[in-house]
Design a protein around this nucleic acid. Sequence first.
DNA 1: ACCCTATGTTGCCCCTGTCAACATCGAGGT
DNA 2: ACCTCGATGTTGACAGGGGCAACATAGGGT
Lengths: 206, 206
Amino acid sequence: MSKSYHHGDLRRALIEKTLELVQADQVHLVGFRELARQLAVSRSAPYRHFSNVEDLLAEVARQGFAAFIDVLEPVATLKGYTPEERFLELGVTYVHFALEHSAHYRLMFDCAYFKQEDFPEVQGLAAHAFTLLKYTSSACMDKSASDRDKLELATMAWAFVHGLSKLFIDGQLAKIKNRKRFIRSSCQRFVRRLTTTMKQGVAGSD
Amino acid sequence: MSKSYHHGDLRRALIEKTLELVQADQVHLVGFRELARQLAVSRSAPYRHFSNVEDLLAEVARQGFAAFIDVLEPVATLKGYTPEERFLELGVTYVHFALEHSAHYRLMFDCAYFKQEDFPEVQGLAAHAFTLLKYTSSACMDKSASDRDKLELATMAWAFVHGLSKLFIDGQLAKIKNRKRFIRSSCQRFVRRLTTTMKQGVAGSD
DNA sequence: ACCCTATGTTGCCCCTGTCAACATCGAGGT
DNA sequence: ACCTCGATGTTGACAGGGGCAACATAGGGT
């Protein structure tokens, strides 16, 4: 009884420990044997819950996407904002999330950890996150805009925020001092320039 | 004599084999023992040339950056083009390189394989690649533009092409059929919109 | 009370990384 | 021509992880 033979909630515990390690940027030492040790459980107990480490990482990534969507969705549907303002806030929120959960974000998007194509549920969530972007960016366009143009703008926006996130996370933008300021400023520029339709000319200066 | 005891050019051979594996998207099975087997050499021979696998991968990444710069530099200095045209071509060339050498590009930028901060030479080459972008994008701006604005545009451009590359490489943009067309089209939009100064208004429709 | 299944444990094997001790080769000095 | 030394390659040994199979235990449903 002292130590119950069965852990009771090993699956959840595995995920939590993995998340801890991910957040501490220690993904490299996520392994069944190591996790088992840290959870005071025998080395092959984890196999009862995940067929391999990739599965475990994919599950953690899945939860990351879920949290990501939970953060983005409210912003994508903010009331009392112009479409451009919503688009801007969505972009800023996107990059902030990526930086605040940088290791998790890496896990979600870097194919080095697990093959997304083997985890349709993860793919589905990723696709859902993209639809938020597409929905929000399309609202900034003329009704006459073609689907192709809508897809192009949404994809450009995704590429931009994703690229900005990755460059920050991977340390390529160490020179930039005030990240939040830079993020807002560049997203603003992106939104203002890219959503302005041809006829209008381009607005303001700041 | 039959088999010379010494390989003769093991270092180069290791790099080449690694490159082969990288290009075949088999980075995961780059290991000294495996490489040694494939090169018909004993398992710890590689240690005479690289202190560990990370060093080897960093070297391959370094060569990747060198090749990258070799491709970008001529485009950044193309004669007979407007600054905007050069900027566009540089962006298109960037993404094309990334897609044509996708595994290599991943190796170069994903910190999962080696820690770039431990390899100053690699960092230097990465920085050089960025200066090409900054040089080319700045040429599209008013002389009155501040350094901060120049840095911002260059960084936005980098984020955009990097993000676009990563999304393609990691399979997030599988829906897009004609990649080359999409790349040129979106880079064109990016350049035209982002480099147009306020006073000019925005040009053409195409 | 019994059994069945989910869960955890242990033993075993093969893989990799890494070091230390030893072997071989080639180049330079004599 | 010969010797020596450093560079390179080899072998043995150990630690550690992934993964499977056989066994152990607990707890719930009959």
